[in-house]
Design a protein around this nucleic acid. Structure first.
Lengths: 213, 213
DNA sequence: CCTTGATTCAAACGAACGTTTGAATTAATT
DNA sequence: AATTAATTCAAACGTTCGTTTGAATCAAGG
């Protein structure tokens, strides 16, 4: 799932960065804390990644690229399966969400951490993150917009944009801030079963997307 | 709308903090930048607020308290108007969302900034923000959970928690990251008309909440 | 007018930060 | 085995940070 030409010190730094940044935030995580956790020398970060900003970008890209590739591949597959006809709404949503939710399944360690990082990326308005957001979020979303318009021909172009934005919000908030659900439900609801969560999210979003104007 | 016993230096600091933190984030905003923007002395922050963390909390509370009061007041009003019967789903959602969206209307300056701050609060996992989140987000949400269960008696307790979490995500993402909508739609959609946005959000969420299991 | 308390101010404090340096060490190549 | 390149390391650099200090200024009250 992840390009594993990266090894040794470089990989240790990336893993520690993922864990610590998810726990503390970008600015609050120092290179000293990262290198201490990774059990490497302080200067190793600058040697392997040149700068802290570049390290953050490398860490994010390592996770984002395979996710977005999986999303588009899944959508491609569903479109092929559909022949010329539009892909079913639920399938589109599955292609959009499943590759991310796969990360919280047992076996993909550090996956849960990454969901927090996604939230941090959108919230923290650092200049060097903007190109990544535009490329990995906005650009990829347009492909799903087209599929959505085909699936729901009654929706205007603008309305489709709004509702896809909403659907993104459902999923994003659900996975990135799942601790709020635990808190408000006093522990009765938890984001543990990825498949059950996916079903719930798709069910909610599909109804919202199909709603009469 | 906002308690205005605060004046002079203290108010200037709060306003500058709001603007700068929304633009740069918590850690990336220095007290020197804040005091320079507010045109007050550096030491004024520690004099009036003791510490930077306390300043952040004061700034957030100044906005959050009136919003949450307005939410509960609106829900109270709708419950009173409904007599003993359950409040209509759309009304519940309006009570939940309108007080926040009012902030982006012309006349409430700095309101837009605050929406970014909400996103930062959830994403940035600073320890001193956790109590505020639990109190102002989770605690208040439980009241709306009860109203929701009355409006949709077919929904199980757990399912209601999940879907309210989803609805929160729709609204939250829509207002806090509205620049993503502008970006993916290439400027065709914008969060300018608060009433239109509220209508769209409520429409989407109501359909999702009512969806068959 | 003088005093008292509240506020502002310039200056400095120690701590922590990202980054750089140059030597030491390891790995690879011939 | 000798040489070259890649990597690690301890130490330090300059900067910026939140906070503290003590004197200066202001606003009333007696």
């Amino acid at each position: 799932m992840i390009q594993d030409d990266i090894q040794g010190t470089k990989l240790a730094i990336l893993k520690a960065t993922e864990r610590l940044v998810a726990a503390k935030g970008f600015e609050a995580t120092s290179l000293r804390a990262i290198t201490a956790a990774a059990k490497v020398n302080l200067a190793a970060v600058n040697y392997h990644f040149a700068t802290k900003d570049a390290l953050i970008l490398a860490m994010l890209n390592r996770r984002l690229r395979p996710i977005n590739e999986a999303r588009l591949a899944l959508l491609d597959r569903f479109e092929k399966e559909a022949g010329g006809r539009p892909v079913a709404l639920e399938k589109i949503l599955e292609a959009l969400f499943r590759p991310v939710l796969e990360m919280i399944k047992p076996g993909s360690a550090n996956g849960r951490h990454f969901l927090r990082l996604l939230a941090l990326c959108l919230a923290e308005p650092s200049a060097y993150l903007k190109p990544l957001i535009e490329k990995e979020f906005s650009e990829k979303t347009r492909r799903f917009h087209r599929a959505l318009r085909a699936a729901l021909p009654n929706l205007s172009d603008a309305e489709a944009h709004w509702r896809l934005h909403f659907a993104h919000g459902v999923f994003f908030h659900a996975v990135a801030h799942s601790e709020l659900l635990v808190s408000t439900s006093r522990g009765r609801c938890r984001l543990t079963d990825a498949d059950a969560a996916l079903r719930r999210v798709i069910n909610f979003c599909a109804a919202g997307l199909r709603a009469a104007a």
